[in-house]
Structure formats: structure tokens, C-alpha cells
């Protein structure tokens, strides 16, 4: 792993997916700080835990509320939001403030690579190629204002 450990919040209503993500995050040397299955829970956990990264599904236990969660969480300084969704078409063109989309079904490699990429950028690492399997938002791709959560 490159750079210090990231504190990751999982926003996912499928228990098995969330549990496997927790294991994977820990295995990759990061810290899974919590799992939220509903939008309000996600916002409350983010407020209490101030995660570095939030992996957010579009469809949560209370409906397609992941977009709103991404908007809320990405507005927090210091939190980078990545969508993990099988419904990328639902994500608005500005990615609701999220830095990127990881399309489900994803492989473990993509999650590892995405977290490593975020860690690199957060800690001022040399510019690296964007990870394969992650669609970066227009803001991150560099054709718009730089994302305040991902200092170059």
C-alpha cells in the first residue's frame, strides 16, 4: 500500500457486499470505520467519524438516496466520495460531488487500486495514472475546477 491508511465509510445496503468490502479494505491496509445502509445513517456516521473516503451505493435501504448522500458527504472538507453502483446511469453528470464511479460488479483489484489512488492524491503523491475500472468525475479529470478534497 502507498501512503498512510485511509479511514473508509461504507454506504451499502447489501450485507454481504458491505462485509466483504470491510475485509478487503482492512486487507489493503486501510480502516473500515463504519457501514451505513440508509441515507440518514450515512450522513450521521460521516458527521461522527469524519471518514477520508466514503464508498457509496446509489440504491440504499431507503431507495435511490445514494446521490443525495454523495452530495452531502462530498461537501464535507476532507471526505472523498466514490460511488460503487450497478446503476451508473443514475449518477448525474456532475457526479453529485463524487470523485468517481466504480461500476458493479467490480473486482477486488479495482477497489484496492481506487483506494491507493485516493491515498496518493491526498498525500501529494506524484501524479499517477487514474486506476483502471474507475470512471473519474469531470472535476477530477481536470477539465473543470480542481476538487478541493483531492489536492494535487
Amino acid at each position: 500500500m502507498s501512503g498512510p491508511a485511509l479511514r473508509v465509510l461504507i454506504v451499502e445496503d447489501e450485507a454481504f457486499i458491505a462485509l466483504e468490502l470491510e475485509c478487503l479494505i482492512e486487507e489493503a491496509g486501510h480502516v473500515a470505520v463504519g457501514v451505513a445502509t440508509r441515507s440518514q445513517e450515512a450522513v450521521a456516521l460521516a458527521r461522527d467519524l469524519s471518514p477520508d473516503v466514503a464508498l457509496v451505493d446509489v440504491h440504499l435501504a431507503d431507495g435511490p438516496t445514494g446521490i443525495g448522500v454523495a452530495q452531502d458527504l462530498s461537501a464535507r472538507p476532507g471526505t472523498t466520495v466514490l460511488f460503487t453502483t450497478a446503476n451508473a446511469k443514475r449518477v448525474p453528470p456532475d457526479f453529485a460531488g463524487a470523485a468517481g464511479i466504480i461500476a458493479k460488479p467490480y473486482s477486488e483489484r479495482v477497489i484496492r487500486a481506487a483506494l491507493a489512488y485516493v491515498a496518493w492524491r491526498r498525500h501529494g503523491g506524484a501524479s499517477t495514472e487514474p486506476p483502471d475500472g474507475v470512471v473519474l468525475s469531470p472535476a477530477i479529470r481536470g477539465d473543470a475546477a480542481p476538487d478541493p478534497d483531492l489536492p494535487d
Binding site: I17, L19, E20, H59, K104, Y106
Partner: peptide
């Protein structure tokens, strides 16, 4: 089609997660 597509993808992720767990 989108709904079914979404469910298939999500289920594949669940199956994969189960086996990996």
C-alpha cells in the same frame, strides 16, 4: 431492461462477495 440489468449486476456482486468471504 435497466432494472433487470441492475439486479443481475448487484446479484453477481453479492455472489462474488459471498464466495470471497
Amino acid at each position: 431492461l435497466h432494472e433487470v440489468d441492475h439486479r443481475v449486476k448487484n446479484n453477481l456482486q453479492v455472489i462474488s462477495s459471498l464466495v470471497l468471504l
